Computed example of a mutant assay.
Amino acid sequence: MQDFHFPDPKALNGAVSLSHLGIISAEGADAASFLHGQLSQDVTGQTSNQARLAAFCSAKGRMLASFIVVKPLPETLWLLTDGQVLPTALKRLSMFVMRAKARLSDAASVLSAVGLVGPAAGQWLGDSALADPWQASPHAASGGHVVRLPDVLGAPRWLWIGPVEAAQALVSALPALPLAYWQWLDVMSGVVRIEPATVDQFVPQMVNYELVGGVHFQKGCYPGQEIVARSQYRGTLKRRTFLLHGNAPIQAGQEVFSAADPGQPAGMVANAAAIPTLDGQASTAFSALVELKWQALENGWHLGSSEGPALALGTMPYEVPLGTSDD
């Protein structure tokens, strides 16, 4: 397998419209308490200067959607999620509103999300260029809200959410960043986004959600909470998500096979993106976040079948505990 050559993320600089994402708006006096009872995160304790990851699970504890939750106003929350997952997630959440004073809607007509990377973006943000991951702040000049995302290989990143017109002006004001670059940075961050191909596939811990702050274990009940808690405290977790690279196209939902047990799938691709090339040409190499049986982690991996393209284990940006073989 050839070596993988990554661009220097610290050299990336600019803004990109995150057209692959969507935003659910939750408004009303009970919006926070309603979402608190549906998501894996403490929403009632969230303040306007915090953004939080959350999982929306089925009764079996499998993730139906992943959200970045932002609270721009006391009775308003924004849930950023995969744009193709949004309609089904919104419909399912709306089924449980009942008498709660909460209104859920697809905010596509009024809100947009923009990804920001590098020093030019930090200069444009000014005092809103927050330093710590998952801090949030209003950006008065644009009427939007800013979330500091985890750095990727030293590159600072922010998420801006705000009015559609202001988003267009923001993208025009900064150097253009290709969406493919942003998607690769997302993969390299180690934070999984549920896509259509992976809906109802993973318990949150399988995609390391408790490691990146996406599960609050003291918040009380939500759909699937018992399964998620059992996975955490009874040592039943046999699968984790890792970063892999390959010299072939990779996409979410593809199965991965281990050389140690070639007769059955050993994992599934959660997210994947092409590795940006240094010369701007089309890439033939990909990075992927892959949920795997961790017991055979060093035995070699193949995409699609035991005879498929080989995959190389990369380095996650945070420690992934593997437990013991007796768990």
Rank of each mutant, 00 (worst) to 15 (best):
Q46K: 11
E75Q: 15
R234I: 07
L125A: 04
R157K: 11
N271T: 09
L64C: 05
S142K: 03
T198P: 03
V152G: 04
C57D: 00
A100K: 15
H145M: 05
T324K: 15
G314N: 04
M98I: 15
V290R: 09
L149N: 01
G22D: 00
S142C: 05
W182D: 00
L211S: 01
S40N: 01
I24Y: 09
L153H: 11
A274R: 12
V85Q: 04
D8L: 13
F4V: 14
T236H: 10
Q84N: 13
V256H: 08
G61P: 01
P265E: 05
D151T: 08
P309Y: 13
A31F: 02
D279V: 09
M1W: 11
W182A: 03
I275L: 14
P119Q: 12
K71V: 05
A312M: 10
P265R: 12
L12V: 04
L79K: 06
E307A: 15
Q46S: 10
I23E: 00
A26P: 02
G126L: 09
G213W: 06
E165L: 11
L35H: 03
P276H: 07
W294R: 10
D106I: 11
H216T: 12
A108P: 01
P321K: 10
G28T: 01
S48I: 02
Y222Q: 03
A32T: 02
V164S: 10
H145R: 05
L12S: 07
T76V: 14
T76G: 02
Y209M: 15
L35E: 00
N13W: 09
K91Q: 13
L73G: 00
G143M: 07
S19R: 14
V110T: 14
A180G: 05
Q41N: 02
P317A: 13
